[in-house]
Design a binder for these strands. Structure first.
Lengths: 144, 144
DNA sequence: AGCGTATAGTTGACTATATCAACTATTGGG
DNA sequence: CCCAATAGTTGATATAGTCAACTATACGCT
């Protein structure tokens, strides 16, 4: 089944990726979906991360993110607490459980990544990410 | 907003792509979504294309495809007719309207692709597709 | 021929994702 | 002090994706 066009390659890849991540995550019985995972990553890598940070970094609807975060809180992976200076901002941070789970998650992700990149050189993967990043910027910026 | 990991690059790109295609398509008031478009492509490029061909090529649920095809037929873009030799198979083909729309669609797609690939060389795009294809194969095949 | 099994497609019920608009609470600037 | 802007929440609704049961045809077999 050769992939010819850019769009179909992209589409197929995104779909397959979603399915695989979900399998990996369900297999690990973490009870999270791919977007939960992205949120956790963003929370992990962002200093005093707010819901709005997640919105801008993912490009999703803020309603969707609000509900997602609510779930993470319900699962006791994440806690929120109002910013001292600006009480509108609710800073998100990991609980102990959240930290523990995130470690496990990184392992699971590395497995998915390794599977995905099987047979590819590091350089190819780097190039791929670089090109994807350029495409993302093209889409986001150039709106003539 | 630098994209570091493979997964976040993929995810963001897929999301952005979906949004952009949808905008392009809505802008052209074709009333179709990205998956409709993929179906049309597959129908266009497949000799006596059946619903099942679309299922295998897209990896989606056959129920979803069935409904999608039904919509395309309702829109009078596509017609189906039983195969002479195997009456279970319903061959899908474009109507005149379908052909006309597909042409317009290709133009719209080229614009999206051009926007996406702005600043990239042909070689880079080819490499990108090739790597994406490898990744897709990795995901589909290696299930140890 | 008649039987079982595989395949193509359809449908219903359901779950998950995504989007829009209205709303509250706070903030900072005039 | 008032107002526009910002962060977040919620309800309603739309879109997409999944699962299982079902029909109809086809194929292989003894």
């Amino acid at each position: 089944m050769p992939q010819t066009s850019l769009s179909s390659a992209l589409f197929t890849l995104a779909q397959s990726y979603r399915v695989t991540v979900r399998e990996a995550i369900n297999a690990n019985e973490l009870g999270l979906n791919a977007l939960h995972v992205r949120c956790l990553h963003i929370i992990a890598e962002t200093q005093h991360c707010t819901a709005n940070d997640i919105v801008t970094k993912t490009g999703r609807d803020k309603a969707q993110i609000a509900r997602l975060v609510k779930e993470l809180i319900k699962l006791e992976l994440v806690s929120k607490c109002a910013d001292e200076n600006d009480k509108r901002c609710l800073i998100l941070s990991f609980t102990d459980q959240g930290n523990a789970l995130f470690s496990r998650l990184e392992v699971a992700e590395q497995e998915v990544d390794a599977k995905l990149c099987h047979g590819l050189t590091d350089q190819q993967v780097r190039d791929f990410i670089a090109i994807a990043t350029t495409m993302i910027e093209n889409i986001n910026h150039n709106t003539p």
